[in-house]
């Protein structure tokens, strides 16, 4: 179930990424929806799921970026693992805290990407500092909105399951 949810989340992130890129060529610079999925997975506090989730999400971002394949994968793996470890220590319920986690994840990913680019892409330009705050803010807001939507869907799904009649059949009177 969790795997299915992850796959759906990844597909949704990819769709939104394509749609955003179609709407504006600056969208990939301004937001990272694959990172949102990574952090959402990591919120559960399961580091293994988080690191592999980050790996897949990062590779998806790598497949669509012009950077060497694996840069986002490595960065998102680290971010996912770190977020999961933090989520093990904290119970995040307030929106501002959630917003902070997404913002911190985006900032950390950008910093990691900058380091990885400096190491693995000789002569490659570092990510623009102009877009960094935009990316942090938009990723944080997108993550918050996504989390709220996911919570709403989960609540409705749970309520429907509770209303569903039990599997016991009573035959006769």
């Amino acid at each position: 179930m969790r795997l299915l949810r992850f796959a759906l989340g990844l597909a949704a992130a990819a769709l939104l990424h394509f749609a955003g890129a179609r709407a504006s060529s600056f969208f990939p610079l301004a937001a990272d929806l694959f990172l949102v999925v990574t952090v959402l997975v990591a919120r559960s506090g399961r580091p293994v799921e988080a690191m592999f989730g980050g790996l897949v999400c990062g590779w998806a971002a790598d497949a669509l970026s012009g950077l060497p394949f694996g840069l986002h994968g490595l960065a998102d793996t680290m971010v996912g693992y770190g977020t999961a470890r933090i989520a093990q220590q904290l119970v995040v319920q307030r929106r501002t805290s959630l917003l902070s986690i997404f913002a911190a994840a985006a900032a950390a990913q950008s910093a990691l990407l900058a380091v990885l680019i400096a190491v693995f892409v000789p002569g490659g330009g570092l990510p623009s500092l102009v877009w960094l705050p935009v990316k942090v803010a938009s990723t944080a807001l997108a993550g918050l909105a996504w989390a709220a939507l996911a919570a709403t869907v989960a609540r409705r799904f749970a309520a429907r399951r509770r209303r569903r009649p039990s599997g016991t059949l009573t035959l006769g009177r």
């Binding site: 592999f52 694996g70 994968g73 490595l74 793996t77 693995f120």
Partner: peptide, 16 residues
């Protein structure tokens, strides 16, 4: 596992 995954990816990037 995390360290292994990171190292593997670093090798992947280096091999690339």
């Amino acid at each position: 596992l995390f360290v292994a995954l990171v190292v593997a990816q670093l090798f992947l990037l280096a091999g690339q």
